[in-house]
């Protein structure tokens, strides 16, 4: 399908794809915002959440924070490569970011297995319900991002649609920022 002329216009001077990704991120911010605001209200009303939170594993959380933040670096470098029209290098760097995302998801799976086998499940109490819901929604975004990044990298390797490297990078940074809120709220505030 050829692109309509509408897609190629830019009355604002901002490329259409970038504009759309910002609107996607804006609509995601209010989704996570609503969830986190609900959690914070509960946390303030229930001091005992602190005791429940002490069962979360801060070290695993910290390791995952490190992995996710580092994976954003290769996304930035991929954007740089795409600006230089070096699609192959951009694809390789995106591959590195995907590896980071997969590591994050793998570690998360192992962590949850540990928690569940120690008896902390979705229904244990309101804290653990929020813990699994918020971190789970975030993990879905990580996995979704990795999948989309795979398609972007495939095209970039052939020098096609290089502007998308920046767009998926913007989305990835957003996923990072959400985790930066989740980590202290769920792991550190005890």
């Amino acid at each position: 399908m050829s692109k309509p002329i509408a897609t190629t216009r830019s009355a604002t001077g901002i490329p259409t794809g970038r504009l759309a990704v910002w609107w996607v991120i804006a609509s995601e911010i209010v989704i996570f915002g609503g969830l986190l605001a609900s959690y914070i209200m509960h946390r303030l009303g229930h001091p005992e959440f602190g005791d429940y939170a002490s069962h979360t594993n801060t070290w695993i959380g910290a390791f995952n924070t490190l992995v996710l933040l580092s994976s954003s670096l290769s996304a930035v470098l991929a954007h740089q490569a795409a600006e230089r029209k070096d699609g192959e290098r951009a694809a390789k760097l995106l591959g590195l970011t995907m590896l980071g995302g997969l590591t994050f998801a793998g570690v998360k799976a192992a962590e949850w297995t540990m928690e569940i086998s120690s008896g902390f499940t979705l229904t244990t109490n309101a804290f653990w319900s929020f813990y699994y819901t918020a971190a789970g929604l975030h993990a879905l975004h990580v996995i979704g991002g990795v999948v989309i990044m795979g398609f972007v990298a495939r095209d970039a390797a052939q020098g096609k649609e290089l502007q998308r490297v920046e767009l998926i990078g913007n989305y990835w940074h957003f996923v990072d920022v959400v985790w930066i809120f989740l980590f202290p709220l769920l792991y550190i505030a005890k």
């Binding site: 609509s27 209010v30 989704i31 609900s38 979705l122 819901t133 929604l137």
Partner: peptide, 17 residues
């Protein structure tokens, strides 16, 4: 719509659970 529906999307997930 975009700015107001987000919290209810989160709320709907919680209600579903």
């Amino acid at each position: 719509f975009m700015a107001s529906v987000g919290p209810l999307v989160a709320g709907a997930v919680m209600l579903l659970f």
